[in-house]
């Protein structure tokens, strides 16, 4: 089951996802995380503790990023494992969200 931790330093809100980003995380992301993030203008999602994703999870992520951007928020993603990166490559997530979304740390 997906969990997340928020940590604010200066103007940046660091969200660390813990657990698999999959279909079971639908509720927590759509109903809890997104409303919470709407208040922040600068967000980074840390993938360090996400070992697996599934297609629903990726869909959730795309939806999340798009929703924040519609709200004029600035969002980046960091610490993606190589395996997940491979999945993102196949799905061309980098092209969908833009290369600048993915940062080193």
């Amino acid at each position: 089951m997906l969990k997340y931790e928020c940590f604010e330093k200066s103007s940046l809100l660091e969200v660390t996802l813990i657990g698999d980003l999959d279909i079971d995380g639908t509720k927590i992301i759509n109903e809890k995380l997104i409303p919470q993030l709407m208040k922040s203008k600068k967000i980074n999602v840390n993938f360090e503790q996400v070992p697996f994703v599934d297609s629903s999870g990726v869909g959730l992520l795309i939806n999340l990023v798009k929703t924040i951007r519609e709200n004029d928020g600035n969002i980046t993603i960091s610490n993606i494992s190589q395996d997940i990166h491979d999945v993102f490559e196949i799905l061309q997530i980098t092209e969908i969200l833009g290369k600048e979304t993915f940062i080193e740390s």
């Binding site: 999959d22 697996f52 799905l91």
Partner: peptide
Amino acid sequence: AFKSNDFSVSGLQPLITI
């Protein structure tokens, strides 16, 4: 790193969307 267990719940739909 890919989990395909959601295929049984929602099918390929989310994947096709992406």
